[in-house]
Design a protein around this nucleic acid. Sequence first.
DNA 1: TCAACATATGAACACGTGTTCATGTATTGG
DNA 2: CCAATACATGAACACGTGTTCATATGTTGA
Lengths: 101, 101
Amino acid sequence: MDNINEIEIKKMAEFFKVFGDYTRMQILITLLKEELCVQCITDMTQVSQSAISHQLRLLKASGLVKTRREGKKIYYSLDDEHIKIILEVAKEHVEHKNIGG
Amino acid sequence: MDNINEIEIKKMAEFFKVFGDYTRMQILITLLKEELCVQCITDMTQVSQSAISHQLRLLKASGLVKTRREGKKIYYSLDDEHIKIILEVAKEHVEHKNIGG
DNA sequence: TCAACATATGAACACGTGTTCATGTATTGG
DNA sequence: CCAATACATGAACACGTGTTCATATGTTGA
């Protein structure tokens, strides 16, 4: 972590920004288990299909998920080997720490 | 990651939100190496002392850094064993992936 | 081609967030 | 006490972001 430049730090911040939203976090955690179509993902959340679509678009642009079409449905799945590790470390963090308490 | 509830997911998103800012990322990466006072941290960035102070406050409230007073100076250092791991995985990610490209 | 379904897109809006500016608080040395 | 230094705090502002609504695009079956 010594020889790290400004651009890399900026990219890292952008990377984390994607994780810093409840809806996207829900999506990512869900996709850890299995690939799902947009409607299935929408049903698991409290927001509209449009909102999910916008978020999936962002996740795809960030290189975190990939898509596969099957008929009318489009299945989303994780496209990054780092997600699982990072989410597990974060889960451990929130379990063992009372933030802001 | 199976038996995870809504509250934990929200905490995880909040956790990542802290990492999702360039200034805070700069601070955290710097503190990986050594503890530093506010002025030293400010000098490394392009923002004001006030801005740094605000961000340090947030980092402390999030349980990521701790403080130690020494005379007039207050030294900040990391207060979480997960930060290093997470930052390293993130660095690997941005090195091996062209986001949005 | 048409209707129905599945998903994506764009505009608009409310809300959150990072910064600066001005000022307040705390510590030290005289 | 006072001045100087180091840091914190609050208000204000510009900007970004997540959502909904309305609508467009794409796919399938008839």
